[in-house]
Computed example of a mutant assay.
Amino acid sequence: MDCLFCKIVEGEIPADVLYQDEKVIVFRDINPQAPFHALVIPRQHIPTLNDIADEDCELVGYMLKIAGDVADEHGFAEDGYRTVFNCNTHGGQTVYHIHLHLLGGKPMGWPPYQDTLKTPV
């Protein structure tokens, strides 16, 4: 399989790992969009959110729990943080192995891409 994140899981590609266990790995994003930006990925290869099976639901919930734990460990859980899953091309997914973005360390506006939205005339 030619999956970037599977290669990180297998140790073939180095990553700045912040946490790992038998289910997930958390590592810093190489193109951070916030002062703190990490990815939570399952060790199991699941290409997109559309591919999550019933038996994967516990794993996806676990990813969210670990994101909260990492936010707490890095000192920004109380101030707040953002978690994001992207799905397929229009959702901004570029690596087809589900991953949860964990962003923190600054106030975040909504919508996230305010500068790209056009205001109706």
Rank of each mutant, 00 (worst) to 15 (best):
M1A: 15
P47H: 11
V84A: 13
P32N: 03
D29A: 09
I98R: 04
D56L: 11
V40P: 02
L59N: 05
L39F: 13
E12D: 14
E12R: 15
N31V: 09
Q93V: 06
D54I: 05
I13Q: 10
L117Y: 13
K7H: 14
D56I: 10
L64F: 14
F5D: 01
P107G: 02
I66Y: 04
V24F: 06
K106Q: 14
G105V: 03
G109F: 03
P42A: 10
E78V: 11
M1E: 11
K65T: 14
R28C: 12
V24Y: 03
H101G: 03
L4P: 01
G105C: 04
G104Q: 00
G104R: 00
Q20A: 13
L64H: 12
A77S: 12
A15F: 11
T89P: 00
M63N: 06
A38Y: 07
E55M: 06
M108F: 10
P42R: 04
L49D: 03
K106N: 04
V95A: 09
V24K: 02
I30C: 01
K118Q: 14
G61R: 05
C57T: 01
Y19E: 00
P112G: 15
G61S: 14
C6M: 05
A38G: 09
I30Q: 08
P42E: 02
T83C: 15
N31I: 06
E58M: 09
A67P: 01
E78N: 07
P112W: 09
L100G: 08
G92M: 05
A38S: 15
G105P: 06
H101D: 08
I98D: 06
V70A: 04
D54M: 10
D51N: 14
V70E: 05
M63V: 02
Y62V: 06
I8Y: 10
K65G: 11
G105T: 02
I8R: 08
D56Y: 07
T89Y: 10
I41D: 03
Q33R: 15
I8H: 06
E55I: 06
A53Y: 05
A53H: 13
E73V: 01
V84E: 04
V84S: 09
Y113D: 13
P35Q: 01
E55W: 08
D56C: 12
N86S: 12
N31T: 08
H37N: 09
V95S: 04
V24T: 08
V40K: 02
P35A: 09
I8V: 15
D2T: 14
D16S: 12
R82K: 15
G68Y: 06
A34G: 07
I25N: 02
M63P: 00
H97Q: 09
A53K: 14
E22G: 07
M1H: 13
Y96S: 12
Q44T: 14
H74A: 05
G109Q: 11
M1N: 10
T94F: 08
D115F: 14
K106I: 02
K118G: 10
T48V: 11
V24G: 03
Q20Y: 13
D51R: 05
L117N: 03
D16N: 15
P107H: 06
